[in-house]
Write a protein that binds this DNA or RNA. Structure first.
Length: 391
RNA sequence: GGAGAGUUGGCAGAGUGGUCGAAUGCGGCGGUCUUGAAAACCGUUGUGCCGAGAGGUACCGGGGGUUCGAAUCCCUCACUCUCCGCCA
């Protein structure tokens, strides 16, 4: 606030100085035309002073603005009033829990064993060729991936989202726009030779479409969806968290994004949650919805719902979607506005959600649907997979 | 990767040192005319910042420089296009 005061005062003086300088320049021009060189020379000394002063002020202004920007970039979003208080994931609020947890047979195993048994995913080969966290999917494992992507995209299209295939690398400005930079600098793969970042989610390119854009009010909401691989360094993860498909450096995801009128963003968040709930029901997976507490909320989000599926053999919940309302956090950085009926520009609201992230869905599908002889594929996927069982 | 040409308002496209935030056309908005519409005509039509307002100030791809004065000259970066090379 104090910085802002300073900024205003400096701006005012700068404007005045420039105003005087401008008018003097005009006079000097006129004097030259009239051939009054001597008088012009005298005035030049005055403009010299003004120039010096305005340069000082410009520098001052620039550093104040830089300081303000830095402050802004380091300030996380403030939580919505619906967000429960709390510090850790234990304080997240379970909104609902739907679907039946399956009773598995005696020899039921976690998905990494199933993937091996039915030759669906090769983690070792991935380690050899790339590194840990970069598996190969093969045969029906690969085809199941492709089927899920297709299914998710079709569902999103059905729900009115326009499909995009975005670039999978972005520049620094885009990383800042959606809030990954500077906050999560170390989480993204950075191709330093070209100063490009591998996207951690399609949210980044899709939302940055609206960087420096002023929409007409009637153009809201903008609904887009897109498939992309997602790259995450996941530094510091270990143990059972990273076993199998639980946490990867590269995974597939279909993302839904909306840019909306501020009055509607709360309702649209619910709409997006409902869309994801629909997907999970169609996949016949038991899941629960969490409302994240303040402490578990991401840097950029004002309110987030996490969707978790039940992974029956691991006997744990796996996060498969995170649906957030960023309100003006991103649009402020993106300078994404709309022109309201009052003729003025206002910041729009942005939201996004996974719909859905693949690996943990695959993990749950494999584990929950296993029997002694194989794995059952949910009916809704049959037309995409071309098979109804893995055995 | 090599050579060349570009980047101006929603779009097209003038402007090569001062009176240019910027001609003109198209589009958009408002009005006149009309039963209604079209056409025609008139007006209006970028964004940020400071200011109660009047108004001021900044922005002609980004950054820097020359100059009393830069859309216009110089340097640099990015991007686009054309030709050559390479290539899914």
């Amino acid at each position: 606030m104090a910085e802002d005061e300073k900024r205003r005062a400096t701006q005012a003086e700068l404007d005045n100085t420039l105003a005087e300088s401008n008018s003097l320049s005009k006079e000097i021009g006129n004097l030259y035309k009239q051939g009054k060189r001597d008088e012009a020379e005298v005035m030049k000394s005055r403009t010299g002073e003004l120039k010096e002063r305005s340069q000082e002020l410009k520098d001052q202004q620039a550093s104040i603005e830089e300081a303000l920007t830095q402050m802004l970039y380091q300030l996380p979003n403030s939580p919505d009033e619906l967000v429960p208080a709390g510090l850790t994931e234990n304080d997240n609020e379970v909104v609902n829990e739907l679907g039946e947890k399956p009773n598995l047979h005696e020899e039921a195993t976690p998905h990494w064993d199933l993937a091996d048994k039915y030759d669906l995913i090769d983690f070792d080969l991935g380690s050899k060729v790339s590194g840990a966290g970069f598996p190969f999917y093969k045969g029906k494992g690969a085809r199941l991936q492709r089927a899920l992507i297709q299914f998710f995209l079709d569902e999103a299209n059905e729900a009115g989202y326009t499909e995009y295939i975005p670039p999978f690398v972005v520049n620094e400005a885009s990383g800042i726009g959606t809030g990954q930079l500077p906050d999560k600098e170390g989480q993204m793969y950075h191709a330093t030779a070209d100063d490009l970042y591998l996207i951690p989610t399609a949210e980044v390119p899709l939302t940055n479409i609206f960087r420096d854009v002023i929409l007409k009010e009637a153009e809201l909401p903008q609904k887009l969806c897109g498939y992309s691989p997602c790259f995450r360094r996941e530094a510091g993860s270990y143990g059972k968290d990273v076993r199998g498909l639980n946490r990867l450096h590269q995974f597939e995801k279909v993302e839904i994004v909306q840019v909306v009128h501020p009055d509607n963003s709360a309702a649209i968040l619910d709409e997006m949650v409902a869309h994801v709930v629909g997907l999970l029901k169609k996949l016949e997976l038991p899941f629960r919805t969490l409302r994240l507490c303040g402490g578990d909320l991401s840097f950029a989000s004002a309110i987030t719902y996490d969707m978790e599926v039940w992974s029956a053999a691991q006997e744990r919940w796996l996060e498969v979607s995170s649906i957030s309302n960023f309100k003006t956090f991103q649009t402020n950085r993106l300078k994404c506005r709309y022109k309201g009926s009052d003729g003025k520009t206002h910041l729009a609201h942005t939201l996004n959600g996974s719909a859905l992230a693949l690996p943990r869905i695959v993990a749950a599908l494999l584990e929950n649907n296993q029997d002694e002889n194989g794995i059952k594929i949910p009916a809704v996927l049959h037309k995409y997979t071309g098979f109804d069982r893995i055995d």
